[in-house]
Simulated scan of single mutants.
Amino acid sequence: MHIVTRSLAWVPAARPGFEGLTLTLTPTGATAVGHITAEPSETDPRGFDVFYRIECDEAWRTRYVTVADTATSRSLELWSTGDGHWQGDDGRMLVHLLDAVDVDLSATPFSNTLPIRRLGLALGQSAEITTAYIDIPSLHVSADRQRYTRIAPSTYRYESLDGSFVRDVEVDDEGFVTDYPGLFTRVGR
Results as ranks from 00 to 15, higher is better:
Arg53Val: 03
Leu98Thr: 15
Ile116Leu: 05
Arg117Gln: 00
Pro12Met: 10
Ala38Gln: 12
Leu94Ser: 02
Val169Thr: 02
Ala9Tyr: 04
Glu77Gln: 08
Arg61Thr: 04
Leu119Thr: 05
Asp104Cys: 13
Phe48Trp: 08
Val166Trp: 04
Ile136Lys: 06
Pro109Trp: 03
Tyr133Phe: 09
Asp135Ala: 14
Glu42Gly: 04
Arg157Ile: 05
Pro137Gln: 00
Thr26Glu: 02
Ala30Asn: 09
Phe110Cys: 13
Met93Tyr: 05
Thr24Leu: 12
His140Pro: 00
Ser164Asn: 10
His96Phe: 12
Ser106Gly: 15
Gln87Glu: 03
Thr130Phe: 08
Arg189Gln: 13
Ile134Trp: 06
Ser111Gln: 08
Ser160Met: 01
Thr43Cys: 01
Arg74Ile: 01
Gly34Thr: 11
Ile151His: 12
Ala13Phe: 13
Ser126Leu: 14
Trp60Leu: 11
Gly124Thr: 04
Thr70Gly: 13
Arg63Ala: 03
Thr149Ser: 06
Leu121Met: 04
Glu128Val: 11
Thr70Asp: 11
Leu119Trp: 07
Phe110Asn: 10
Ser164Cys: 11
Glu128Tyr: 01
Gly91Asp: 10
Leu94Gly: 04
Asp89Ala: 07
Val169Ile: 05
Trp86Ile: 02
Gln87Val: 15
Leu139Ile: 09
Gly188Leu: 09
Thr24Ile: 13
Gly88Ala: 13
Asp90Trp: 10
Gly20Ser: 07
Arg61Ile: 10
Asp162Arg: 00
Phe48Asn: 10
Ala143Gly: 11
Tyr148Ala: 01
Asp49Leu: 07
Ala68Asn: 14
Asp168Asn: 14
His35Met: 09
Leu94Glu: 05
Ala152Tyr: 11
Ile54Asp: 01
Arg15Lys: 04
Trp79Arg: 10
Tyr133Val: 08
Asp44Lys: 06
Thr149Trp: 04
Ser41His: 05
Phe184Val: 12
Asp102Gln: 09
Thr81Trp: 07
Ser154Asn: 02
Ser126Asn: 07
Val177Pro: 02
Pro153Ala: 09
Phe176Asp: 00
Tyr64Lys: 09
Ser138Trp: 14
Asp102Leu: 02
Leu119Ser: 07
Thr149Asp: 00
Ser75Thr: 08
Arg157Thr: 04
Asp168Val: 03
Asp89His: 12
